[in-house]
């Protein structure tokens, strides 16, 4: 009986597979072909052109620096938020809801929000002026203030992207029965020991998902950077965009896209190896 029906699962999966193949695999193959061909013949010309570009090294450096600065901070904040909200009884839902508001804002809108705060005539300068901290409008987002610009972009990214990490962490924390922490407490573990030795190891799967998702997204950072820094702060996706739209060179843009994909896949692989999730050691 059941054997005759073994095709049913495949039938049910078919639409999604077809859909993915059509909208993902095909463009992916096309992009890769576009990146590694020239006038219809395989060629490394696009990749060479990409690497020779003056913004190439800067955009790689910026993207990695931003990722390294933003992701750990987001993880730390999300863990702190998740642990705090777990202690709250009434009003928990409301707090979570407020915290996830940035999730509902598009990244470009988020960039514009922070632009209105940080631009020369923005709220931040008005505040500093009002308080008498500065004498005249300071500029934070120009190419002459790279540190401030980096800092501004990092803060905006943290503000925008922490909620998704927190949502995953909270889901992970909910999976850990409170008795584990209680047992540790009975046997003499303080809050820090409980966090490092009990909670953190038990939310490994959530930690892994959150890190992969957030890191991949961090490598794809674009709209916030573009809104705040324009071309003063080149990043990988920004370069792809410029080659595609300004330079109308689809080949080099495709080479950037492939590079971003390779970096993301590598990061994912590293996380999968580094934060091994052994189902044998889960609750």
């Amino acid at each position: 009986m059941t054997n005759n029906r073994s095709w049913i699962p495949y039938l049910l999966i078919l639409p999604s597979v077809a859909f993915l193949a059509l909208l993902f695999i095909v463009p992916l193959v096309q992009t890769i072909w576009l990146a590694f061909s020239d006038n219809g013949v395989p060629s490394p010309a696009n990749a060479q052109r990409m690497m020779a570009d003056i913004n190439f090294t800067r955009s790689i450096k910026n993207t990695f620096l931003l990722t390294i600065a933003v992701v750990p901070v987001q993880l730390a904040i999300a863990l702190a938020m998740g642990t705090m909200v777990a202690k709250v009884g009434r009003g928990r839902e409301t707090i979570l809801w407020v915290w996830t508001i940035p999730l509902g804002i598009s990244d470009l809108a988020a960039g514009l929000v922070w632009l209105s705060i940080l631009q020369n005539s923005g709220y931040f300068n008005s505040l500093l002026l009002g308080l008498g901290v500065i004498g005249r409008q300071a500029s934070w987002l120009s190419y002459q203030t790279p540190v401030a610009l980096f800092f501004a972009i990092a803060v905006a990214e943290i503000w925008r992207g922490t909620a998704i990490v927190m949502v995953i962490i909270v889901a992970g924390l909910n999976q850990v029965p409170k008795e584990f922490r209680e047992a540790a407490e009975i046997f003499g573990a303080g809050p820090w020991t409980r966090f490092w030795r009990i909670t953190l190891p038990l939310i490994r799967p959530a930690l892994q998902s959150a890190l992969i998702l957030r890191t991949v997204l961090a490598f794809e950072v674009f709209a916030v950077v573009y809104a705040l820094g324009g071309r003063n702060f080149p990043v990988l996706v920004g370069e792809a965009y410029n080659w595609q739209n300004q330079n109308q060179n689809y080949g080099v843009a495709a080479a950037y896209a492939v590079l971003i994909m390779i970096i993301s896949l590598a990061a994912t692989l590293i996380y999968l190896k580094a934060i091994k999730v052994d189902p044998e050691r889960l609750p």
Binding site: P177, E179, I186, G188, G190, L202
Partner: peptide
């Protein structure tokens, strides 16, 4: 007093043996 200062040990009904 918090649990750890009460000087006791406990066996939980659902064991709470650390899986990791």
């Amino acid at each position: 007093l918090p649990p750890k200062e009460r000087g006791l040990a406990m066996v939980f009904q659902n064991y709470a043996v650390f899986p990791h």
